[in-house]
Amino acid sequence: MAGRLDGKVAIITGAGTGVGRACMERFAEEGAKVLGAGRTLATLEESLSHVPSGMGAIHVADLSKDESADAVVAAAIAAFGKVDILVHAAGVGYSWAEKSPGSMNDTVNTAPDKWREVIGINLDGYYLMARAVLPKMIAAGGGAIVGVTSISGLLGLSAAHAYTAAKAGMINLTRSLCVSYAKDNIRANCIAPGFIDTPMVASVVGIFDDPVVADQLAPMRRPGTPVEMANGCLYLASDEASYCNGSVLVIDGGTSARQ
């Protein structure tokens, strides 16, 4: 079924890799013009190369910075004239510990600066993007916001406490956006992925080669793919999800069913 987003303009954050890149591709396939935002020009350019000519644009931004979100929204409007959809896939996960040691530890072993770092990237960025895009959506008569969270925001874990707190915060912010802006014809939903085969977990994805471990990680015994996550975002952003608001769509191959 093609054309589900014909005439729409979507901002996709975290668009340089993984779920964000897959969202750029899938949304463009379904007729949307897409503005991809992220930290690294080279990866954004690679994502843009998978989008039909004239259907995409990119903007380099550190979305943990207050001013960056406004600049992303302005870039989308300059390129395509409006914003109908925000998919916030930007964030860091377990692989961030390689660049920032100590950022994915438990509470006692997470220094305050590491806590603020992860919260700033994962939660503050979502708040800032929503804050920047909502006035445009309200003025236009509606829109759709989709946050890419994690089942780690629904479960207690022994490590990565800043990460789990940020993802839980994203989930409840999504619900609060629903409550506040439904009257403005704005829907806010999120997906909660499980173990997804992205660069964020590339160093450990081989653990699925062990069938016993694979079964413990997910009853489907494999990681999910970025495209499977993008399909969930696409559904929530489309008119097919017209009565979905404040929803958390878990896409985890059954991992959380055992909790």
Rank of each mutant, 00 (worst) to 15 (best):
A130T: 12
V108C: 04
N105F: 11
A130E: 05
I191T: 12
L41T: 10
A71T: 01
A144M: 10
A218T: 01
L234S: 06
A37M: 03
P52G: 07
A144E: 12
G232L: 00
P112H: 04
V19W: 01
M1N: 15
K8F: 05
L155P: 04
Y163Q: 06
A79S: 15
G3E: 07
L177H: 00
V108G: 09
A257G: 08
G143S: 06
I196L: 00
L123C: 09
R221D: 06
A111Y: 05
G102S: 05
H59T: 09
G141R: 10
A241I: 10
G14W: 13
G169K: 09
P226E: 07
K99A: 13
R131G: 03
D113P: 04
G3N: 07
M1W: 11
C190W: 04
Y163A: 01
S180Q: 12
I151V: 15
D184Y: 14
R131V: 02
F195Q: 08
T225F: 12
G143E: 06
L236E: 10
C244Y: 11
L236P: 09
K82V: 07
A74G: 10
I196A: 03
N189G: 12
G102H: 03
I186H: 10
A71N: 01
G254P: 02
H59A: 04
G31E: 01
V204F: 03
S100G: 02
L35H: 00
A140W: 08
V204I: 15
